[in-house]
Amino acid sequence: MAKPMPVIKEWQVDRLKGRDFIDFADYSPAELDYLISLAERIKHKQKMGEPYQPLLGKTLGMFFTKASTRTRVSFEVGMYQLGGHAIFLAGNDTQLGRGEPISDTAKVMSRYVDAIMIRTFAHEDVVELAEHASVPVINALTDLHHPCQVLADVLTLKEYKGTLKGLTVAYVGDGNNMANSWIQAAPKFGLNMRVATPEGYECDPAVVEQAKAFAEESGTELVFTKDPVEAVKDADLVYTDVWASMGQEAEQAERVEKFAVYQVNEALCRHAKPDYLFMHCLPAHRGEEVTSEIIDGPHSVVFDEAENRLHVQKAILVATIG
């Protein structure tokens, strides 16, 4: 029997129209649940071959100063499937690369497109862009946050486990943008969260304080440790990311040395629940942050997770453009 689709409550319809999607701090648990439910419905329609084009005639402007595979393809394909159009703008293709103020670019682009997606380095640039744009701004990645990826991760976790409340997520590795977005989102979805990072590579302090407040409000567990075993013990999901993100290539050798005991391998994962899932936002460096036995093994759902970027981003586009 086909799985019933979640009911979208009337109060939720158009509630997010015109909203930015920059990080999870600005979204309530009910609003995030709505985005997951909407993504489930949109994914179901695609799998059933049911046309769904609520964004017919709409245009998404896409700014990239960081290279991408999954982000560009999933947003372009998503807009096409929703009936709209996406315009790709690399850093050197715009006047931003020649010093035009972000505020001017935001005001001009708002006259042309129905939403702006940006993948860049400085989170402050996205905040400034959203401040001056009159159309929704979607954060497709900054050095501080990666909310679209975490929303896809949560959808994948729900698909496999059936529920989210009370599950435990273990993040092992660098306290980077992925870890920052995870600690923001987990309490809002009713998830317990444990993060293991080496000394000096912790999550952003301001985001940690936000996350602690969210966890206290939701009554969920939020643990920060230096011990990867403590983080992974009885976890439902084991998560990691590359040790040196884009722009940190010069630190690669130093990071490999400091992160060696944080590798996600069979020995570490024996401490997780027997039916644990493994996720990685990709691209992965097999033999560094994760072994091939884990990422290519039976617990890994990395390609389902990657596919779900398409579905959650379509949900964000539908909800914010309206």
Rank of each mutant, 00 (worst) to 15 (best):
G99T: 14
G99I: 13
G99D: 10
E100F: 10
E100L: 08
I102Q: 00
D104E: 15
A106M: 10
K107L: 03
K107W: 12
S110E: 05
S110Q: 11
S110M: 04
V113T: 07
V113S: 06
V113D: 13
D114F: 03
D114V: 02
A115I: 03
M117R: 07
M117P: 10
I118Q: 05
R119M: 04
T120V: 10
F121L: 08
F121R: 08
F121C: 01
A122K: 15
H123F: 13
E124F: 05
V126I: 13
V127W: 00
E128H: 01
E128S: 03
A130S: 04
H132W: 14
H132F: 11
S134D: 13
V135M: 06
V135R: 02
V137K: 00
V137I: 05
I138N: 00
I138A: 01
N139Q: 08
A140H: 01
L141G: 04
L141N: 01
T142S: 03
D143E: 11
L144P: 06
L144G: 02
H145V: 09
H146M: 08
H146I: 04
P147L: 11
Q149N: 10
V150K: 04
L151P: 10
A152R: 07
D153V: 10
L157P: 08
K158P: 13
Y160D: 11
G162Y: 07
T163A: 06
T163R: 09
T163V: 09
L164R: 09
L164H: 04
K165I: 06
V169Q: 01
A170G: 03
Y171F: 08
G173H: 04
G173I: 09
D174M: 04
D174A: 06
G175L: 01
N176L: 10
M178Q: 04
M178V: 12
M178L: 03
A179G: 04
S181A: 11
A185D: 08
A185R: 03
P187N: 05
P187D: 05
K188Q: 13
F189M: 15
N192R: 14
R194A: 15
R194F: 11
V195G: 09
A196I: 13
A196L: 09
T197Y: 12
P198C: 11
E199W: 12
E199K: 11
G200N: 02
E202Q: 07
E202R: 02
C203D: 02
A206D: 14
A206E: 15
V207E: 01
